[in-house]
Every structure is written in C-alpha cells, then in structure tokens.
Amino acid sequence: MATANTVNGRIERARTELSPTQMAAGALFIAALGFTLLFVQDPLVHDSLHNFRHAAGIACH
C-alpha cells in the first residue's frame, strides 16, 4: 500500500491487485464486447435498436 495517490500509483495498484489472468480475461471481455457492438450490423439487432439509437444521438440510416 506504499503506492502514492497518483495516476501512476493507481496503475501500479491495479497491477498488484489483479492477477495477469484476471487482466487478460478482462481485456478479452472488453475486446469481445467492443467487437460485438461495432460489427453486429445484423438487421435484426440494428433495427430493433432503432429508437434507442435515435435517443442516444447515434443515428445511421
């Protein structure tokens, strides 16, 4: 707990708190999520989000 309260300290802290496996799993999960959000342009998914995309200001017609 000798890490200073700085951004570097927080990065250090995350490094000691999380095991490499946890970090790899987290990174993989985020990558999978991002990939899904970006590339699921399937009409079924895309169109059922139509109203939401308008409300969120992310519209593509």
Binding site: L44, D47, S48, L49, H50, N51, F52, A55, A56, H61
Partner: peptide, 19 residues
C-alpha cells in the same frame, strides 16, 4: 416503421432494455 427487419413492438422493448 422505416426499413425495419423487426416489428415496432420489438424495437420498443429492445430500445428500452438498451437504454
């Protein structure tokens, strides 16, 4: 509904969940 693959009811439900 404009150029949609799903019904308006589905769109509404999915949009609320997405919100």
């Amino acid at each position: 509904h404009h150029d949609s693959a799903v019904s308006m009811a589905v769109t509404k439900a999915v949009s609320v969940a997405a919100g």
